[in-house]
Simulated scan of single mutants.
Amino acid sequence: MLIDTHCHLDFPDFEAERDAIVARAREAGVGQMITISTRVKRFETILAIAEAYPNVFCSVGTHPHNADEELDITTEDLVRLSAHPKVVAIGEAGLDYFYDNAPREAQVEGLRRHIAAARETGLPLVIHSRSADEDMAAILTEETGKGAFPFLLHCFSSGPELARVGVELGGYVSFSGILTFPKSEELREIAKTVPHDRMIVETDAPYLAPKPFRGKRNEPAYVAHTAAVLAETIGVTTEEIARITTENAFRVFSKMPRL
């Protein structure tokens, strides 16, 4: 069994055929999925999707692109909403200096609030980091010094130093369809350095479809293709990578039941 640890089933891309997408994932061996929040103010929609499918779980949080829109969302709000049985993570939150869709100060403030919620609840923080390696490493190091919290670096496409710091601080590294792209040699080299007990897989669907679906809409079933490339990269079988990444997913998303 595989677990898609990061998809966005609430996005309009899936609205017309959500039932079929969840069914195709199951047929592809994807036993469970986590649909990730990007706006707390849309949380009820995300939660309704998670409640509609026994094998779908969710998170609560604000994407860095939307950080300035939700500065009224407090750590206490995140903690309160995360008490629902279907909520297994905080986020996604983080820093995106590539697009800079929100002021960096707002992104940092939002990230720290989410870290506090992860620390208080024990739920893992799903971290988005793009073109912000130094600041992200510094904040994670500083905040871990205040008290450890579980986290994962989602859709990892950063440099080797952030991967190293993340692992040293107790975090996990999540690989998406980017790992399968021909020009991702550096990312595959980084994957070889990540301890086997710290790697998980995701789709980030509807984005970043892996080969051979690149350029098309991604969906949770396709996580199997990313897992196959990860297996080849680190020199294990597809069966072994399924076991490794699934066990790791249940460890980091410790609130998610085994179905």
Rank of each mutant, 00 (worst) to 15 (best):
M1V: 10
L2A: 03
L9K: 04
D10Q: 14
F11E: 02
F11M: 11
D13Q: 15
E15M: 09
E17Y: 07
R18D: 08
D19H: 11
A20D: 15
A23M: 10
A23P: 10
R26C: 09
A28R: 09
G31A: 14
I34A: 09
T35Y: 00
S37M: 00
R42L: 14
E44W: 12
I46C: 07
L47M: 04
A48Y: 10
I49N: 10
A50P: 09
E51A: 07
F57L: 12
V60I: 11
G61A: 07
T62D: 07
P64K: 05
N66S: 12
A67I: 00
L71Q: 15
D72T: 03
T75D: 08
T75L: 06
R80V: 07
R80C: 08
R80E: 13
L81W: 04
S82C: 06
H84V: 02
P85F: 01
V88W: 04
I90W: 02
G91Y: 03
E92G: 08
D96S: 01
D96P: 10
N101Y: 14
N101V: 01
R104T: 04
A106M: 04
V108P: 13
V108S: 03
E109G: 11
E109D: 13
G110S: 15
G110W: 06
G110Y: 08
L111Y: 06
R113L: 01
A116H: 00
A117G: 03
A118C: 08
E120A: 15
T121P: 07
V126E: 04
I127P: 11
H128V: 02
S129Y: 01
R130D: 01
S131L: 13
S131I: 12
D133K: 07
E134T: 14
D135E: 14
I139R: 10
E143P: 07
G145L: 12
K146C: 09
H154T: 04
S158R: 11
G159D: 15
P160V: 11
L162K: 08
R164L: 08
V167Y: 05
E168P: 12
L169S: 04
L179P: 09
P182D: 08
P182M: 06
E185W: 10
E186A: 13
E189V: 02
V194K: 01
V194G: 00
P195Y: 11
H196E: 15
H196F: 13
H196P: 13
M199S: 01
T203R: 06
A205M: 00
A205I: 00
A205C: 09
P206T: 00
P206W: 06
L208M: 11
K211Q: 15
P212A: 09
K216D: 11
K216M: 12
K216E: 13
A221R: 13
Y222L: 15
V223I: 11
V223K: 03
A224D: 11
A224K: 14
A227N: 08
A227Y: 03
A228R: 14
A228I: 05
L230W: 02
E232S: 14
V236S: 06
V236I: 14
T237D: 11
T237F: 03
E240W: 03
I241S: 01
A242V: 03
T245S: 09
E247L: 09
E247V: 03
F250H: 15
F250D: 11
R251W: 05
R251T: 12
M256N: 06
M256T: 05
P257L: 07
P257D: 05
L259K: 13
